[in-house]
Design a protein around this nucleic acid. Structure first.
Lengths: 142, 142
DNA sequence: TGTAAAATGAAACACAGTTTCAAATTGAGG
DNA sequence: CCTCAATTTGAAACTGTGTTTCATTTTACA
């Protein structure tokens, strides 16, 4: 599907390593730049974006957007050692901004239904459910 | 929940009208600016964003992002005359970019499950399912 | 070691969205 | 109809993400 990745340079290794060390976390390009700079090894913005694009192309990393988070988020998938199961999705509270990891068989069920009845192959990793979390619902009173 | 909206000016009426006339469609701020300009009544970018923010605050309009679409999308909800039922969600094909309107009881079912078992109140209008559409799946062969 | 291909960094750039502030428009009261 | 305070508008400056360009450096490999 996608070309193999060669880690020719220090920079390319560091970007991949950073994401691998934070499975399931929401990493932004700005965060990567800031972290490398703080470590005394600043990396050009252009290089960070280039490396991320390459990793996404190769299918090793998922790129997705979360409303309220400035810029795209990236998360390591890995080839076989995926940190979340296939059905791992995220819920985002529109009020407090909390990001909840969701491991739920119902999502897998919906996925099967969408595939069988609508022909649509849901990618649960890239999909974010928006709504209100329990705490914020309680606070709203309604 | 949100303050009532007063349509004092021509600009505020036009932005709301544009969205009301296109229920369920994905309207961007840039599109609004371009359209008003084409009609010979250009509206300042700042004003467009201000009016959209106001409408979102009032709950009359939903703001959401779709990967691959530059800028946020806005869609009219309306107070009671919502164009899509509560379970209206969108599917976005990550390959061809197609946006599919989904009216599916399974989504409502998932919504109930999330509410009952996870305490999370899903907002189907703001949520976009990412994956592969039927045509692209067929093209991939797999 | 030498050389072609690939990767890097700095800066310029494109674009979404926000902020600022002076000028225009609104509505309410006289 | 006129005046004035409050609101809204538009233009421009600005912030931040992400891309492009190009000269320089690094890599792979013979």
């Amino acid at each position: 599907m996608a070309s193999k990745i060669h880690y020719h340079t220090r920079q390319s290794r560091e970007v991949a390593q950073y994401l691998q060390d934070r499975p399931g976390q929401h990493v932004t390009a700005a965060e990567l730049c800031a972290c490398f700079a703080a470590q005394g090894q600043p990396m050009s913005k252009a290089t960070v974006y280039r490396r991320l694009d390459r990793l996404v192309e190769a299918g090793l990393v998922t790129r997705y957007t979360v409303d309220g988070v400035t810029g795209a988020c990236y998360a390591w998938n890995g080839p076989a050692d995926a940190p979340c199961e296939e059905s791992c999705t995220h819920c985002k509270c529109e009020k407090c901004g909390a990001l909840i990891h969701l491991h739920c068989e119902e999502v897998a069920h919906l996925r099967r239904h969408l595939l069988d009845c609508h022909g649509f192959a849901l990618d649960p990793r890239r999909t974010v459910f928006y709504g209100l979390c329990q705490a914020c619902r309680a606070a709203e009173g309604a």
